[in-house]
């Protein structure tokens, strides 16, 4: 789970659903789990959009259409280009577990909901916020040529669309960048901080 990330170069899966909430990313019935098995959560990723009530794949959904149906592996389908306001709604980190469990390493959108964005970071999936124009161009490029490679360079904070040679920088704070690049958990940082910082008392 705690993988070190420097660059990700991969083809992308376009999931063009605006306001795609975390209930859609993982339906509530999968929240009954008490463990964090990546295989289980990967199977639950966008379950009700991928499969109908009888468990049959919905052929029209992007994750069931070649070449996007191929499970992510090095250089293939490891990046989601998402709709606007991705991950809104419930705070369930299970949504980030499902994304990571499926094999996704970065989510690109012009807006990602605050809580989900933090959850992605804590699951070592890189949230990349780009301009709406860059996102639209990416979607157009991928539609015309699904084999288009997109490169995310975490150190330089850049994302490049090889189909158009356009490139944009994205924001990520230096602390989180360091954590992602070195596979460091916030909890380790916080436990360390207790040795040097005095916490207040809650008065009441």
């Amino acid at each position: 789970m705690q993988q070190e990330t420097t660059t990700i170069t991969s083809t992308c899966i376009p999931i063009c659903i605006d306001n795609c909430n975390t209930d859609l990313i993982i339906p509530a019935r999968y929240l009954a789990a008490t463990t964090r098995d990546p295989l289980f959560f990967g199977e639950a990723f966008m379950r009700d959009l991928r499969y109908d009530a009888d468990g049959q794949p919905r052929p029209d959904f992007v994750l069931n259409r070649p070449p996007f149906a191929e499970r992510p592996r090095d250089g293939v389908n490891q990046i989601i280009v998402a709709g606007r306001n991705w991950g809104s709604g419930s705070s369930r980190e299970h949504a980030a577990w499902a994304i990571a469990g499926y094999g996704i390493r970065a989510v690109v959108s012009s807006s990602i909901a605050d809580i989900h964005r933090n959850n992605l970071l804590n699951c070592f999936v890189v949230p990349v916020i780009v301009s709406e124009a860059f996102r639209q161009e990416l979607l157009t490029t991928i539609e015309a040529r699904p084999a288009t490679l997109v490169s995310i360079d975490l150190e330089a904070q850049t994302i490049a669309n090889s189909g158009t040679n356009s490139r944009e920088t994205f924001a990520i704070n230096g602390y989180k960048k360091y954590c992602l690049m070195h596979g460091i958990d916030d909890i380790d940082f916080l436990l360390q901080s207790l040795k040097t910082h005095q916490l207040p008392q809650t008065e009441l």
Binding site: S90, R92, E93, N118, N122, D186, I187, L190, L194
Partner: peptide
């Protein structure tokens, strides 16, 4: 839970967090 925002009505900063962050607060109260 994302509806933790509810408690802000009493004049508090109340926010929903993810499970990794729940672990962080259990461990460090931060």
């Amino acid at each position: 839970d994302s509806h933790t925002s509810t408690h802000g009505a009493v004049g508090a900063i109340a926010m929903g967090i993810g499970t990794s962050e729940v672990a962080q607060v259990l461990a460090s109260q931060c």
